[in-house]
């Protein structure tokens, strides 16, 4: 959903697993929807981890643990690998996450998050380990993400890092503009390119 980003301060939901692939984020059977209902995808985020095979709630999974809540998902290295399905980003957005923090994101998924107003924040392994540690000690640990300054702060320890974000995407996020809004303004340039490359 298009929304303006500025400063986000929230508690976190920790998912200390590496290589979380998009099949786990949203299983293939939920790709059959033909509309983009974020609520539907959000309800099925991590479906097969959230629910047992018999449909009952898996109480051991972090999203079902009442100690954890917030707009920030903190995940292990190589988050979002596998299939290119944008539905994974819709599910993350639909659940209510605005930020995902990891030490590494799979390329396509990272783009998909950015295009859907979920901010992927890449941090160092050290920062990530410390953050998991803070959350383990105190589930209410808060993190502050400043999109204007491109910094992320673990408010429990005061550790602060800057994260990569191109100025173009930063501008889009802070002004709630998407890429197509931009491209539609470029028609004459595209036609010029087509003539030139014939």
């Amino acid at each position: 959903m298009k929304q303006k980003f500025d400063i986000i301060e929230s508690s976190c939901i920790p998912l200390p697993l590496e290589n979380v692939d998009t099949d786990q984020i949203i299983p293939a059977r939920f790709l059959k929807a033909v509309t983009r209902d974020e609520k539907f995808f959000g309800e099925n985020l991590f479906r097969d981890w959230r629910y047992n095979a018999d449909g009952s709630l898996n109480k051991d999974f972090v999203l079902n643990d009442p100690r954890y809540s917030g707009e920030i998902l903190v995940a292990g290295k190589n988050f979002g690998s596998g299939s290119s399905r944008e539905h994974a980003a819709w599910a993350i957005a639909g659940y209510g996450f605005r930020v995902v923090i990891s030490s590494y994101f799979a390329d396509i998924h990272r783009n998909n998050e950015l295009n859907n107003f979920v901010l992927p924040v890449v941090v160092s392994e050290k920062f990530l380990a410390e953050l998991f540690d803070s959350i383990a000690k105190d589930p209410a640990t808060r993190v502050r993400v400043d999109v204007g300054a491109k910094t992320v702060t673990n408010l429990a320890t005061g550790s602060c890092e800057s994260f990569p974000l191109g100025e173009y995407k930063q501008y889009c996020l802070m002004n709630a503009l998407d890429d197509i809004d931009y491209l539609l303004q470029q028609k004459s340039k595209i036609e010029e390119y087509e003539k030139k490359s014939k």
Binding site: S84, I108, N111, N116, D179, I180, L183, L184, K187, I190
Partner: peptide
């Protein structure tokens, strides 16, 4: 290369996509 649905929409709309050069 593979792209997300939002990028499919970009190409449908403009035959272009916005990408960082890998």
């Amino acid at each position: 290369f593979g792209i997300g649905t939002g990028e499919v929409e970009m190409v449908l709309a403009s035959q272009c996509i916005l990408q960082q050069k890998p």
